[in-house]
């Protein structure tokens, strides 16, 4: 299970990073979202991977799951969700203000093209 989990997390993070480095706003937002999913999965695994483990201490139970990473992931999901919503709106605002969805300054690129 560890190998599969690690591969999935790593693949998500790599895809997120690749998209976040693109030049248009939409892939950047999607990339950051994927990155936050990867981070959530990673945080989840920091308490050790267990299945069917109890989170609350009880008599007669020996197999425990660490509840703290779950609480952390919950917080991270809420924050990540708000941030994604904000960045989507912001990307639309940039699109409206600039007339293009380029992340970098359109005017700067034009002047570079003029020189070449």
């Amino acid at each position: 299970m560890e190998a599969l989990y690690a591969t999935v997390t790593g693949f998500l993070a790599a895809s997120g990073l690749y998209l976040a480095l693109r030049g248009r706003t939409f892939p950047v937002v999607v990339g950051l979202t994927l990155l936050s999913y990867a981070v959530n999965l990673f945080l989840f695994s920091t308490g050790g991977l267990t299945t069917n483990g109890a989170a609350v201490i009880r008599d007669g139970v020996n197999d425990y799951a660490d509840p703290l990473p779950q609480a952390l992931v919950l917080t991270a999901i809420v924050i990540g969700f708000a941030m994604t919503a904000f960045s989507v709106i912001l990307a639309m605002r940039v699109r409206g203000d600039q007339g293009s969805d380029q992340v970098n300054d359109q005017r700067g690129e034009e002047s570079k093209e003029d020189k070449s």
């Binding site: 976040a20 706003t25 950047v28 904000f86 912001l90 990307a91 300054d105």
Partner: peptide
């Protein structure tokens, strides 16, 4: 501001 803002947020 929106342009600089997007860089800052990302």
């Amino acid at each position: 501001r929106t342009q600089a803002g997007f860089h800052y947020v990302a």
